[in-house]
Design a protein around this nucleic acid. Structure first.
Lengths: 342, 342
DNA sequence: AACGTTGTCGCAAACGTTTGCGGTAAAAAA
DNA sequence: TTTTTTACCGCAAACGTTTGCGACAACGTT
């Protein structure tokens, strides 16, 4: 039994009218008499008729579907972005197709291709860590399909973007570490080609500079996941006696670093202060609770979707591309010391 | 500028052949001469031709897309299920559309409707907490569209299911609490209409019975989220002196309960032991680390997708519906005491 | 020379919709 | 009564594909 859902022509045949009449009746076209209109509507309701979205998209050349390409939905920041996107999208009658790249370039390429194949009306994307080639995005750009980047943006392509002020955030939290007495702060950052990681590193360096603390290159590690922290465990522990603070590029690495430090007898924050980025819910659950920066994922998702909607509603207009910047907010918790009363 | 992607007839026009020839050439149909085949393939590659998935689905009456209806992707258990599903799906050439119900019945209804509108080939669903009416699923069932439930199943409908052995898991971990010396164990559970919650409550009760400990109804609270824990804060604290263990229906409520207990001077596990369900990654990050049950989300997702694939490949067969049961594994950590050497 | 093969290709229908246009009847206007 | 209007409805094309069937050459076979 192949599952055949009832179509307009099924209704037409059953009622002895033409498909066009059914189509018009269902959407209250004035050409249809009240009698047949009611008859058709009643029958359609009885058999629970639902228009075939595929046929509709094909005919209308609009799918009312937007595609999301995102690294991994397991991370709270990303899933809250998705919620923000979805809530706006649903309220405007759009559906979303979510694709995970799993931080893998090849999968990311496949994902955008599949979304284009499905003729999404627009794309919302956060790049994977491993993409350094942007040709797949460039081809989207050239085929005039609206696309907005969020969080991890592609600065080589001129599109709308929604980002957090990574530079300022990093500067803010590094300054906080310094205010609480830290002088030798280890930075756990990302690969250099990630824009976001560059900004955070720069913010960290700026805070040092602001406070006349020299930047020590050895104190900046490429280490941005729990796994890489564990791989660098020996290095980190070998430096532990020489540092009094850690600023990690995200909360999960901050927490992992905090754990290996505690396991080896260091007290947080008495010996070493630790700070993260993102304010993942776990930050409140770990011991000690983690000082970090709140990133407004949900709002960023909403904003990204709103930007996309504007593009979709004005396909002709040559809008200049816009950049929305969200300011992260410091969440002071127990992994950093209280600020000394001077 | 409307973004028109190149179609088969575009190629046909450009090369002075018919669309059918292009179609056949691209798929190496023997009717086409090598010359024209090469010419067509070369041109298609040059313009980066990609078949329109919508038109294909409409024509073939198969979308190679499956729909997922899931409560909330923020939870690690659910997002690992999704990863399991995706990995199998992708390897078999299927795409997935993910819909979040946000534990809301109305949204769940909308979601399955939208997925049906998009003519998904099959459905993978985990019910929301609030659904007590199953008519939307029943109509899927009646229209012969393959559907498999996972985790929170609908036992009113005879479909394939992938579940964890909630009864056994609850019995296992409650027994562990008892072995470590607990006698008065508070159970934080879900609404009674959730099958999963019933099973866990029954497992809890069975473990008590196994050890000749009377079941005290007052010790079973309906409280299954961090929010509801906070709402019941006073009640829980008022009972804290009379209990020596807590078994919560999931990790986040266990952790929240653990926190309010610690904040009020109770030591975990010396005064009160705490156990969860699910082995969320945070269980390893909180203090003390949480004893819980590992649920193999990724494998469950894989299994669910495999069951669905079998249905899809044998549409005619009247397979009896199958139930796959996963055994959760006890993860002993520091929120429960060591088992006394006898 | 007449026939059957074989190799290449196009026509047209179909999937489910929408919509411009034309048609037919009855009603209104002349 | 004839003509024009109005109300109502169907035809057919189109969106991008696939595919059965038929067409028409250029062959090979008697």
């Amino acid at each position: 039994m192949k599952p055949h859902l009832t179509s307009i022509s099924d209704i037409a045949k059953a009622l002895g009218v033409s498909p066009s009449t059914v189509s018009r009746a269902l959407k209250d076209h004035p050409d249809i008499s009240e009698g047949t209109r009611e008859k058709i509507k009643a029958f359609a309701a009885k058999v629970n008729y639902r228009p075939n979205a595929l046929a509709l998209s094909l005919k209308k050349q609009v799918s009312h579907t937007i595609g999301i390409v995102i690294p991994e939905i397991v991370h709270h920041f990303f899933s809250s972005i998705i919620s923000g996107i979805e809530d706006i999208a649903y309220s405007k009658g759009y559906r979303v197709m979510i694709c995970q790249s799993n931080e893998d370039f090849g999968r990311e390429e496949m994902n955008v291709q599949a979304l284009l194949d499905h003729r999404v009306d627009g794309l919302l994307v956060c790049m994977s860590k491993s993409t350094e080639d942007f040709s797949h995005f460039l081809s989207v750009y050239r085929s005039q399909i609206p696309m907005v980047f969020f969080d991890r943006v592609c600065k080589e392509i001129d599109t709308d973007r929604v980002i957090t002020d990574d530079f300022n955030g990093a500067r803010l939290i590094t300054s906080h570490l310094i205010e609480t007495g830290c002088r030798k702060i280890l930075h756990l950052g990302t690969q250099p080609h990630l824009h976001i990681g560059q900004e955070r590193l720069q913010g960290y360096m700026q805070a040092l500079k602001d406070n006349n603390i020299p930047f020590v290159p050895e104190l900046a590690l490429k280490c941005d996941t729990p796994q890489t922290v564990l791989e660098h465990k020996d290095i980190i522990l070998s430096m532990a006696d020489k540092i009094d603070g850690v600023f990690a590029v995200n909360d999960s690495t901050a927490i992992t670093a905090m754990h290996i430090l505690r396991e080896n007898g260091y007290r947080i924050p008495e010996n070493i202060s630790v700070a993260g980025f993102g304010d993942d819910p776990v930050a409140n659950l770990v011991f000690p609770t983690l000082t970090t920066l709140e990133q407004q994922g949900y709002q960023m998702g909403q904003e990204a979707m709103n930007l996309l909607l504007e593009r979709l509603s004005q396909p002709e207009s040559e809008l200049k591309s816009r950049i929305k910047v969200f300011q992260p907010e410091l969440k002071k918790r127990n992994s950093t010391k209280a600020i000394k009363a001077k």
